[in-house]
Every structure is written in C-alpha cells, then in structure tokens.
Amino acid sequence: MTPRSIPESFDLTGRRALVTGATQGLGTDVVRTLAAAGCDLVLSARTHEALQALAAAVRGDHGVRVEVVAADLSDAADTESLASRALAAFDGLDVLVNNAGVSFPQRVVDVDAGTWDRTLAVNLRAPALLGSRVGRAMAAAGRGSIVNVSSVAGSLALAEHFAYSSSKAALVMATKVLALELGPSGVRANSVSPTVVMTEMGQRVWGEQAKAAPMLVRIPLGRFAQPGDVSGAVLFLASDASAMVNGVDLTVDGGFSAA
C-alpha cells in the first residue's frame, strides 16, 4: 500500500482560484486560507482600492500570485466580464469560490422589487453565471472545484429574510445541478451553509448577549461559527481531500439544524 500524507491532500500549490466578496469578513478569511495552502488567487469585490490592499498583504504573507478584478455582481454584464478576466489572469482556474452575498432584512409584507431583485442577482444569478462560465472552462480542462457559500437560512426559514433565504435555498439547488452536469467532466460543485459567523458584521448583529442567548441555546456546540470554521470547510471542498465529494451542501452550524 502506498503511504499517504494527509497534509498533501489539502495542498493547493499551483492551483488557481477566484474568490468573490474577497475584501470583507468571511471572504478575506477564505482568501488567506487558500493562500496559506499555496493557491494563486484572483480576488474580486466592488472596490479596487480594497482589493489592491488585500492583494499586497496576501502576496507579502504567503508568496503566491494574486490578481484583482473589481466587479459589481448585481450587474450581469459585469459578472460575465469577471468570469472572462479571471480565467485570463492565470490562463484558467481550478477553484471557484462564490462567496459574495447581500442581505436586506425586511418583513414579507414590506418586501420591494428593488431589494428582492438585487438580492437574487448577487446571491443567485452571479454565482450561477460564474459557475456556468468558469465551469465550462474547468470542464474543458478536465478538472475543477466550485464552492458556493450558501446559508442555513436556505434550509430553515429565517424571519425578515424572505429574499435572502429564497436566494440561498435556490443556490443549494443550483449547486446540485452544476454537480450533476459538470461531474462527468471532472468538475465538482458543492456548497457550504454556515449559521451565524462572527465576522465584524456578525459581531455587530449578534454581539449583544441578550440577542445572542436565544440563538446560542439552539446550537448544540454552544457557540457561533468563527470565520476559520467556514474557510476550513471551503479548503476541504476545494482540495483533493474531498475528491469524491460532489453535489453536497456541507452545513457548518454546530448542530443547529440537527435539533
């Protein structure tokens, strides 16, 4: 039997990844995790200056190649352009992490067409288009991994998140179709569904003990997710450690959805 090195299965040296929503919260942690695994990166977000600052830091800390493409994912043309430019940056991509997302909390009776359309555009249409365009190139190359960041709110209803929960539920199914159609060409597609993640935004929303307590009591592990909990799951799905994992929604919620 051939000896197996466990760390090598997570090694992404020489791989190329596009990460959307790269400059905030979870996205930045995903970027740093993939870079630490040796992955070259194309970073995307709306603000060019923030992207450049992050790229410089990641290059300095990890010595990987990093390019940036600013894009507004609520715009279909911008999303199509991002796919083309990201594929051209390093002559192809091995990993796509659709992390960018928006949420505009509203009660069902207050939902307006503008916020609904923007939420679905960023949270569903953009990863669908990127999955299609990047997935096509991956299929031609015979390998690749697509990781879509969904949410537990896509499987368990969350008040005041009508559009958000709808978009994340649809993203999980879109992931399964990507897995079904691209799998025969060697391309895997999976999603990650966290509960509350204690990014800066998570701290602002859930940092108060009075608000957090009722939610925490429903999580068997007794805590919210840290960014590294989710980026570790993304690394697993991006790497050869998950070579036979395809079409799965990996829940990262401390057991919240098991109750």
Rank of each mutant, 00 (worst) to 15 (best):
N148A: 01
F10S: 09
N246E: 07
S74C: 07
V97A: 10
V58P: 02
R107A: 07
V197A: 05
F10K: 11
A169W: 13
D40T: 03
G222S: 09
L73I: 03
A179T: 02
S257N: 13
G135W: 01
F90N: 06
R118F: 00
A189G: 11
Q209R: 15
R136K: 10
D229R: 10
G21A: 08
V149M: 15
L93V: 11
G247T: 01
A126S: 06
M244I: 14
R125K: 15
T2Y: 06
P227K: 11
A238L: 09
V177K: 03
L178F: 00
V187S: 04
V97K: 01
S166Y: 02
G63D: 09
R85K: 14
L41D: 09
E160D: 15
L171Y: 03
V109R: 00
A128W: 14
E200L: 11
P194W: 00
V230F: 03
L129H: 04
L93I: 14
A57N: 13
M244S: 15
S231N: 12
G228K: 13
A157H: 12
G222D: 08
G101A: 15
S74I: 10
V177F: 01
A113L: 15
V69D: 00
N246K: 04
S145T: 15
V31I: 07
S239C: 12
R188H: 07
T13I: 02
L158M: 13
N246Q: 08
A137D: 12
G135F: 00
A139T: 14
D40R: 13
S193W: 00
K176M: 09
D112I: 03
L129C: 06
N246T: 15
A36Y: 09
V245Q: 11
G183I: 02
V149G: 06
L156E: 10
L41Y: 10
V111P: 05
T175C: 06
G186D: 12
A76V: 04
V252L: 07
S166W: 02
V196P: 01
S132F: 01
A169Y: 10
T175A: 00
L87C: 14
G14P: 11
V122M: 02
A225N: 14
P194R: 02
A139D: 01
V109L: 04
E181I: 13
L26W: 02
G101T: 12
A57S: 15
V19A: 05
N246F: 04
A17N: 12
T175V: 10
A113P: 09
G21R: 04
S167Y: 03
I6S: 08
V95I: 14
V68G: 04
G38W: 09
D117I: 10
V69P: 01
R4Y: 10
E49V: 00
A140W: 00
A139W: 07
P220Y: 07
G154D: 13
D229W: 02
P214T: 01
S193Q: 03
A169S: 15
P194N: 02
T251G: 03
V134G: 01
T115L: 06
A189M: 04
A37P: 02
Y164M: 03
V197Q: 06
D91W: 02
G183R: 06
S242R: 04
A35C: 09
V108R: 03
H62T: 10
S185P: 11
G232I: 13
S166C: 00
G38R: 12
G101L: 12
S242E: 10
A56Y: 07
A45D: 08
A137I: 10
G144N: 05
N123L: 08
V66N: 10
G21F: 04
K168L: 08
D78M: 05
H48M: 09
A100T: 15
